[in-house]
Design a binder for these strands. Structure first.
Lengths: 205, 205
DNA sequence: GTCTATACGATGATAGAC
DNA sequence: GTCTATCATCGTATAGAC
């Protein structure tokens, strides 16, 4: 291994990715220039190419990194027994995770079409693995008779879309607390598949 | 009124908008050039400016036009009495409408950040009016005691997000028919707010 | 109504000085 | 490791011929 002397790469690299994340989320991949990213970090445009082979790799790394982290975070949840408990747990996890990382989430959903085919395939595989986790909960719940029969794949997509939608409107410090929002979404998800919410329903509004 | 002689504007204008719709949906507003749009219609880049003042107006017109049409289509639905019937009708309408116009829908959801403030405000007002229609159904249902109490605005956003999510994965000619998909989503929506689906539940899958 | 030609700046990426 | 300078290309939009 070559020894790096006096390198700032270990710190500048992450700063480049963080700047790209912020700018891509705000303006879109296609609308952001390498010069803007460089300016955000305090570099010249040319220096960026020490940290990424090109703009496309920057996007792909952000998306793959996000999905890797998302899958790892879900895998680290405490194991629960019943399907209803697991769906409740998943819904709260998904909402909270997404509200914690609005920029990474936004990019992961909006910039798929800007991925080159090879990168798209990697990302799609990760997205599919995430969706499969929900599908498995639904299958188990139907087998146990606690969820209403319905097409599992359709329902998985629908639930994920519903839970992800929270990022479109939720603003920190608004009328609803984050826990309230997560709990409400968990209740909607459980009822949608025919199970009763685990905690008491919130007041109407 | 000035009289136009030998003008092709009446036919070329719509073709320009159609080409822009297709390209914006496929590659994103920022990634599409005026040259590409012109090539798609068979014009030179400069000639586009006979049909739109600039690229931004092209986007704004597409989005406002889409939302105007969406609101008009919903307003034209046959009036129904009960909240459950109205939510079922809305869910099927929303799914079918969105599956009919995937490109316009995609743009309306993805390109909001590329609208200049004045255009954004126009579009937001229309989106808000659409969401308010759902909120009213939920309020009526809660008042009638047929829907579970829950935050109406949160639930409206969640339901619309769920129903719109169908555009992310549904492909014509796939495993599920369009009517099946619309019916399943209507069932999920009704159950989510605590009401029983109106038609028999489909088989598990 | 459409064309060609063009203004003028920004783009992603590279080469080589320091 | 970062800079400056540069390349070839592309971007939106306009002017003026036909």
């Amino acid at each position: 291994m070559a020894r790096r002397q006096g390198s700032h790469g270990d710190i500048t690299g992450p700063r480049v990715r963080a700047a790209a994340l912020r700018l891509f989320a705000r303006h879109g991949y296609a609308a952001v220039s390498m010069r803007q990213i460089a300016a955000e970090v305090g570099l010249q445009a040319g220096a960026l190419y020490l940290y990424t082979p090109d703009k496309q790799s920057l996007l792909a790394d952000l998306m793959v990194g996000h999905l890797d982290h998302l899958l790892a975070a879900r895998a680290a949840l405490p194991p629960l027994g019943g399907p209803a408990e697991r769906l409740d747990q998943f819904a709260r996890f998904h909402v909270n995770y997404h509200l914690d990382r609005p920029e990474a989430v936004f990019i992961a959903y909006m910039e798929l079409r800007n991925l080159e085919p090879a990168n798209f395939a990697r990302v799609e595989a990760l997205r599919r693995a995430y969706e499969e986790g929900v599908a498995q909960i639904l299958r188990d719940g139907q087998a146990a008779g606690v969820f209403a029969p319905c097409d599992v794949r359709l329902a998985s997509y629908a639930l994920i879309a519903m839970l992800t939608g929270v990022t479109n409107w939720y603003r920190e410090g608004g009328r609803l607390s984050r826990d309230q929002v997560a709990a409400d979404h968990a209740a909607l998800a459980l009822r949608a598949v025919g199970a009763a919410p685990l905690s008491p329903a919130p007041a109407a509004g």
